[in-house]
Simulated assay, not measured.
Amino acid sequence: MSRDTRDRYGTVSRLFHWAVALLVFCQALKLFDRIDDGEHWVGQTLVPWHVSIGVLVLLLMVPRIAWALRNRGNRPPAPPPPALGLLARAGHVALYAALLLMPLSGIAIMLGNGYGLSAFGVELVAGGAEIPWLASFGGAVHSPLAWLLVAMVLGHAGMALVHHFAKRDGVLRRML
Protein backbone atom coordinates (compact mmCIF):
# COMPACT_ATOMS: atom_id res chain seq x y z
CA MET A 1 0.00 0.00 0.00
CA SER A 2 1.39 3.31 -1.02
CA ARG A 3 2.78 5.82 1.44
CA ASP A 4 1.99 9.50 1.35
CA THR A 5 3.94 11.66 -1.06
CA ARG A 6 4.14 15.41 -1.48
CA ASP A 7 1.64 15.10 -4.35
CA ARG A 8 -0.88 12.58 -3.02
CA TYR A 9 -2.02 10.83 0.13
CA GLY A 10 -1.27 7.12 -0.01
CA THR A 11 -3.79 4.30 0.04
CA VAL A 12 -3.58 3.79 3.81
CA SER A 13 -4.13 7.48 4.60
CA ARG A 14 -7.06 7.66 2.22
CA LEU A 15 -8.64 4.48 3.64
CA PHE A 16 -8.31 5.81 7.18
CA HIS A 17 -9.68 9.22 6.19
CA TRP A 18 -12.74 8.03 4.31
CA ALA A 19 -13.55 5.16 6.70
CA VAL A 20 -13.50 7.53 9.67
CA ALA A 21 -15.44 10.14 7.66
CA LEU A 22 -18.18 7.59 6.93
CA LEU A 23 -18.32 6.46 10.56
CA VAL A 24 -18.42 10.05 11.85
CA PHE A 25 -21.24 10.81 9.41
CA CYS A 26 -23.20 7.85 10.79
CA GLN A 27 -22.49 9.02 14.34
CA ALA A 28 -23.59 12.57 13.51
CA LEU A 29 -26.98 11.20 12.49
CA LYS A 30 -27.48 10.48 16.20
CA LEU A 31 -28.21 14.18 16.57
CA PHE A 32 -31.55 13.44 14.86
CA ASP A 33 -32.34 11.11 17.74
CA ARG A 34 -33.26 14.24 19.69
CA ILE A 35 -36.24 14.72 17.36
CA ASP A 36 -39.47 13.03 18.47
CA ASP A 37 -37.60 10.99 21.12
CA GLY A 38 -35.89 8.91 18.45
CA GLU A 39 -39.13 7.54 17.04
CA HIS A 40 -37.98 7.56 13.40
CA TRP A 41 -35.68 5.54 11.19
CA VAL A 42 -32.44 7.11 12.48
CA GLY A 43 -33.37 6.44 16.09
CA GLN A 44 -34.47 2.91 15.35
CA THR A 45 -31.80 1.90 12.84
CA LEU A 46 -28.54 3.68 13.61
CA VAL A 47 -28.70 4.61 17.29
CA PRO A 48 -28.44 1.00 18.49
CA TRP A 49 -25.05 0.87 16.73
CA HIS A 50 -23.79 4.15 18.24
CA VAL A 51 -21.51 2.59 20.86
CA SER A 52 -20.14 -0.02 18.44
CA ILE A 53 -19.36 2.59 15.80
CA GLY A 54 -17.73 4.78 18.45
CA VAL A 55 -15.45 1.92 19.49
CA LEU A 56 -14.59 1.35 15.83
CA VAL A 57 -13.72 5.05 15.41
CA LEU A 58 -11.36 4.76 18.38
CA LEU A 59 -9.80 1.58 16.99
CA LEU A 60 -9.19 3.33 13.66
CA MET A 61 -7.93 6.61 15.09
CA VAL A 62 -5.05 5.10 17.05
CA PRO A 63 -3.30 3.57 14.01
CA ARG A 64 -4.39 6.53 11.88
CA ILE A 65 -2.51 8.93 14.14
CA ALA A 66 0.52 6.63 14.18
CA TRP A 67 0.41 6.46 10.37
CA ALA A 68 0.07 10.25 10.08
CA LEU A 69 3.07 10.78 12.36
CA ARG A 70 5.09 8.26 10.35
CA ASN A 71 4.26 10.08 7.11
CA ARG A 72 4.47 13.69 8.28
CA GLY A 73 7.74 14.32 6.45
CA ASN A 74 6.06 13.48 3.15
CA ARG A 75 3.46 16.24 3.42
CA PRO A 76 3.89 19.33 1.26
CA PRO A 77 5.04 22.49 3.02
CA ALA A 78 2.32 24.74 4.40
CA PRO A 79 1.07 27.28 1.86
CA PRO A 80 1.82 30.94 2.41
CA PRO A 81 1.04 32.92 4.46
CA PRO A 82 2.56 30.86 7.31
CA ALA A 83 -0.26 31.76 9.72
CA LEU A 84 -2.81 29.94 7.53
CA GLY A 85 -0.61 26.86 7.37
CA LEU A 86 -0.32 26.92 11.16
CA LEU A 87 -4.09 27.30 11.45
CA ALA A 88 -4.65 24.34 9.11
CA ARG A 89 -2.29 22.14 11.12
CA ALA A 90 -3.92 23.21 14.39
CA GLY A 91 -7.31 22.38 12.90
CA HIS A 92 -6.15 18.88 11.99
CA VAL A 93 -4.68 18.33 15.46
CA ALA A 94 -7.98 19.49 16.99
CA LEU A 95 -9.93 17.11 14.73
CA TYR A 96 -7.69 14.18 15.69
CA ALA A 97 -7.98 15.06 19.38
CA ALA A 98 -11.78 15.27 19.15
CA LEU A 99 -11.92 11.97 17.27
CA LEU A 100 -10.05 10.37 20.17
CA LEU A 101 -11.91 12.15 22.96
CA MET A 102 -15.39 11.42 21.58
CA PRO A 103 -15.19 7.63 21.90
CA LEU A 104 -13.16 7.85 25.11
CA SER A 105 -15.78 10.10 26.72
CA GLY A 106 -18.52 7.76 25.48
CA ILE A 107 -16.71 4.81 27.03
CA ALA A 108 -16.37 6.84 30.24
CA ILE A 109 -20.16 7.27 30.30
CA MET A 110 -20.77 3.55 29.76
CA LEU A 111 -18.22 2.33 32.32
CA GLY A 112 -18.92 5.13 34.78
CA ASN A 113 -22.60 4.22 34.87
CA GLY A 114 -21.74 0.55 35.41
CA TYR A 115 -23.08 -0.63 32.03
CA GLY A 116 -19.90 -2.25 30.79
CA LEU A 117 -18.90 -2.00 27.15
CA SER A 118 -19.97 -4.11 24.20
CA ALA A 119 -19.22 -3.54 20.56
CA PHE A 120 -20.88 -5.42 17.70
CA GLY A 121 -22.31 -7.91 20.19
CA VAL A 122 -18.95 -8.68 21.83
CA GLU A 123 -18.59 -7.82 25.49
CA LEU A 124 -15.34 -5.91 25.89
CA VAL A 125 -15.77 -4.87 29.53
CA ALA A 126 -18.30 -6.46 31.86
CA GLY A 127 -20.75 -4.24 33.69
CA GLY A 128 -19.83 -3.45 37.24
CA ALA A 129 -19.96 -0.89 39.97
CA GLU A 130 -20.70 2.69 39.07
CA ILE A 131 -17.79 5.11 39.01
CA PRO A 132 -19.46 8.51 39.52
CA TRP A 133 -16.48 10.70 38.62
CA LEU A 134 -15.96 8.79 35.36
CA ALA A 135 -19.64 9.04 34.41
CA SER A 136 -19.59 12.74 35.30
CA PHE A 137 -16.51 13.38 33.17
CA GLY A 138 -17.95 11.51 30.19
CA GLY A 139 -21.31 13.20 30.53
CA ALA A 140 -19.77 16.66 30.77
CA VAL A 141 -17.54 16.17 27.73
CA HIS A 142 -19.35 13.91 25.25
CA SER A 143 -22.32 15.99 24.08
CA PRO A 144 -20.57 19.41 23.86
CA LEU A 145 -17.65 17.76 22.09
CA ALA A 146 -20.08 16.15 19.63
CA TRP A 147 -21.39 19.57 18.62
CA LEU A 148 -17.85 20.92 18.39
CA LEU A 149 -16.80 17.95 16.26
CA VAL A 150 -19.74 18.52 13.90
CA ALA A 151 -18.65 22.15 13.51
CA MET A 152 -15.03 21.13 12.92
CA VAL A 153 -16.00 18.49 10.35
CA LEU A 154 -18.16 21.02 8.49
CA GLY A 155 -15.27 23.50 8.61
CA HIS A 156 -12.85 20.85 7.38
CA ALA A 157 -15.12 19.89 4.48
CA GLY A 158 -15.81 23.54 3.73
CA MET A 159 -12.12 24.38 3.56
CA ALA A 160 -11.51 21.37 1.30
CA LEU A 161 -14.14 22.79 -1.06
CA VAL A 162 -12.58 26.28 -0.84
CA HIS A 163 -9.21 24.76 -1.79
CA HIS A 164 -10.79 22.88 -4.67
CA PHE A 165 -13.12 25.47 -6.17
CA ALA A 166 -11.65 28.84 -5.14
CA LYS A 167 -7.92 28.27 -4.74
CA ARG A 168 -7.72 25.42 -7.26
CA ASP A 169 -4.56 24.18 -5.55
CA GLY A 170 -5.19 20.43 -5.74
CA VAL A 171 -5.50 19.86 -1.99
CA LEU A 172 -8.81 17.98 -2.31
CA ARG A 173 -7.54 15.85 -5.19
CA ARG A 174 -4.70 14.62 -2.94
CA MET A 175 -7.28 12.84 -0.74
CA LEU A 176 -9.57 11.57 -3.52
Rank of each mutant, 00 (worst) to 15 (best):
V47C: 06
A66V: 15
V55S: 05
P79E: 11
L56S: 05
N113M: 07
Y115E: 11
G85D: 04
G116Q: 02
S52G: 12
G121T: 02
I35A: 12
I35H: 12
G106N: 08
E39G: 11
K30D: 13
G114Y: 06
L59Y: 10
A90E: 10
S52H: 08
V93Q: 03
G73P: 04
H40M: 05
F120N: 03
L56W: 02
I109K: 02
H40Y: 05
M102L: 10
G38M: 02
G85I: 04
P79C: 08
A83L: 14
D37H: 14
V47W: 10
A94M: 09
W49E: 09
A90G: 15
L29P: 04
M110Q: 15
G38V: 06
L69Y: 00
L59F: 13
I65W: 09
A83G: 07
I35T: 13
G43V: 05
A83S: 14
V55N: 06
G91P: 10
V55Y: 05
L56V: 02
Q27F: 07
L59P: 10
I107F: 01
G116A: 03
N74Y: 14
V42E: 05
D36W: 12
I109P: 01
W49V: 11
I65H: 09
Q27N: 11
N113Y: 07
S52T: 09
L58H: 04
I107T: 04
G91V: 09
L111G: 01
M110W: 03
M102H: 02
L95G: 00
I109W: 00
P77E: 13
Q27H: 08
V122I: 14
G116F: 03
R72G: 03
